[in-house]
Structures are given as C-alpha cells and as structure tokens.
Simulated scan of single mutants.
Amino acid sequence: MIADLLPIIDKFTNKRIMVVGDMIADIYLEGTISRVSREAPVLVLAYAGETMVPGGGANVVHNVAVLAGYVNAAGVIGEDAAGRELVALLKDKHTDTTGLIIDPARPTITKTRITAGGQATVRQQVVRIDRESQALLDKEIEDLLLAHIQNSIVDMDGVILSDYGCRVITPQIIEHTIERCKAMDIPCIVDSRYNVLNFKGATIIKQNEAEAAAAVGIDIKDKKSLLAAGQELEKRLTARAVLITRGAQGMTLFGEAGTVTHIPVTNISEVYDVSGAGDTVVAVMALALAAGAAVADAARLANAAAGVVVRKLGTATAKPEELKNAVRQYYGSGRSNSEGIEYL
C-alpha cells in the first residue's frame, strides 16, 4: 500500500489545477473575556487580534498550492479590502489569481468568526457573521469568468468546481467547464453544497452524508441506505465515481463497475476541527488523479490528508511531508481493514 501511495504524492509537484468556485475570506476575530456587559446579559470581549485565511473555494486553492501543485484560481471577489487581502494571501502561495474577477457591485464573501477565551479556558466560537450577495451573477462578470476558464483550461491537468451556494457557479459555467474537461480528457472534481444534481457528467462527485441524502431524498442511517444514496447519485450524474465523506465513519467510494469501497477514518482520537476538511479532500483527489493515480488510491490519499487537517484548528492544509507521514503511519500499520472493505 505505502509503495503505491507515496510515489503519487511526489508527482503532485507542478500539476496544474484550476479551481473554479466561491472564493471566501475566513476572518477570525479573537477576544478575551473581560466582564459581563451592563447593557445586556452578554460577555464583553477585549479585542486581541484578527486574522484572515482562505475559505471555501479559496481554501481549495490554498490546499493545492501547499501540496506543491500549480493552481489557477477562478471566481469573483468584491472591490473591497477583504478581496484585496484574499488575493494577496493567494499570491503569496504562488497562485495565478488573474481569474479572480472583480465585481464592484458584489462584496467579497466573508465569514467572520468571533472567538473568545481566557487564560484558563479553551478558545471557542461565539458567533459567526456572514457577508455575501445572493443576487444572480451579472452577465458581464459571468462572461469574463467564462472567458478566463476558456483561455486557461487548455493548460490544466485537472479542474475542481467548488460550489458553496453563493451563485457564482452558474449553469453556464458548470456546463462549459464539464464539457471542456471531457473534451480534453482531464478530471473534473465537484464539491457542491446544495446543487450537486446540476453537475451531470463530472468525473468525480464529492459529497458529505447530509448533502448526499438531501440530493437524492434518501435518509442515510445504515449501510443499506448509504449504498442506495451513493448508487443513485452515481446513476443520476453519470459520474466515474462518487465519494461520500462520513465524518467519524471515514469515506465510501462508489466506483466503476459497481464497486463500493469503504475507507476507514485514519485517527478519530485527535479530531479538533473539521472545518475545511472537504476542501482538502477534493484538492488531493484532483492532484492524485492528475498524477495518474487510480480513483481508489486518490481517495485513500484524500482520506489521509483529511486526517491531518482535522487535527488543526480552523480551515487548514496538509503539507506533502505531513501527508507522507500520515500514509506511513496509517497504511503501514498492518491493520486488516486499512485497504478498505469491498461491499459487493
């Protein structure tokens, strides 16, 4: 197993991946608890600092870049401070940001998490404030984004469509991108929170259990319902494979010729934060497939990478050496179930 997986990670270097998606700025505003307010029964936080990290599709971009891939980011940002800082963060990771189209009428999508803690307490999220537009994408902006995809995709080894439901991934962008990937015979990986049935014909569909259940109207509560949901998704979307991530239960891959492979979670005892783990999964899947890996091996690597990032707070990434160490630790452990269980 290790002999098969480790060389794939080395081949990630300079693989060219385009990420088309909802580019989100995740802002963490930290405070320390000072007292209870006189105005209302709420805590007063003394400002302690503020950081921004790439979120949503931008986190997928960040993950690809950290894993040594060349990444082309395509999406929409606002003409605002959050957009400028997000572009600067991605450029610092040697990302091509020419596909981030500025829409003056649309704010950069931001998710501001206010966290609080004290010297003897664990820092916790108090509230999250989201800023985004639910208006349809302007036709001129959509045309500019489509033109960038058209001009740049010819140089790519794979594409990720990261749809967080912010109305940037329009039907025209979906259809054009998937058709271009088919014509060029490169993998197209889809992660869509609410509208996965719109992505018919993509190579790989990634969903978590709740998303998959909602998409096909099947309550996933046991092995039977999981199999029914995964097979129905694969059938409706004519995908090469469907990967359903299942939290503490690992992942289940619905592959070609009706094969179903369960990939157990790597380390449930050290989970701190699952934020952004799905972004890591699709980033690794795209890089692995671009490097020539079989779908099942790509999923195993994605599972190992997810096991790395959930041990970190906030939206996080896995470095190549961290991923290699996870592969050595888990798939070299000699566990009888480490290669997955085939459900026939």
Rank of each mutant, 00 (worst) to 15 (best):
D143I: 11
P107A: 07
L145F: 00
T121G: 12
E140A: 15
Q150F: 04
T112I: 06
R128T: 08
A116G: 01
E140K: 15
L146Y: 06
K111Y: 14
Q124N: 02
I149N: 02
R123M: 13
Q125R: 06
K111C: 10
L100Q: 03
S152R: 13
K91W: 03
Q124G: 01
T97H: 11
T108K: 05
Q134F: 09
T98I: 10
V126E: 02
R106C: 08
K139A: 14
L137R: 08
R131A: 10
E140R: 10
I114T: 04
P104V: 15
H94S: 15
V126R: 13
R106E: 03
A116M: 02
G118N: 13
E142R: 04
V122P: 15
G118C: 07
T112G: 12
T115Q: 09
H94T: 15
T115R: 03
G118R: 10
I102P: 03
K93A: 15
D103G: 15
E132D: 02
K111V: 15
E85T: 10
Q119S: 15
R128C: 08
G117L: 10
G99L: 07
P104Y: 06
G99M: 11
R113P: 12
D138K: 09
R123I: 06
D138C: 14
Q119F: 00
V87K: 15
V87C: 05
T98V: 03
T108V: 09
T121K: 08
P104N: 12
K139P: 13
S133I: 11
V127G: 02
R131H: 13
E85A: 05
R128E: 00
E85Y: 09
A105F: 03
D96A: 05
L90S: 01
S152F: 00
D103N: 08
L146P: 06
T110S: 11
A135V: 01
K91T: 10
S133G: 09
A116K: 05
E132T: 09
D103W: 04
T97R: 09
Q134R: 03
R128D: 01
T108D: 08
Q134N: 09
R128S: 12
D130S: 07
L144D: 01
Q150C: 07
T110R: 04
Q119V: 14
E132M: 10
D138T: 05
I102M: 14
D96H: 11
P107K: 02
V87E: 11
I141W: 08
R113M: 03
D92C: 14
E142M: 01
K91L: 13
E132A: 05
T110G: 07
I149P: 03
I129E: 04
D103R: 14
P104I: 09
V127Y: 09
I101G: 12
D143A: 15
R128F: 14
R131E: 02
L89G: 05
L136E: 01
Q125E: 03
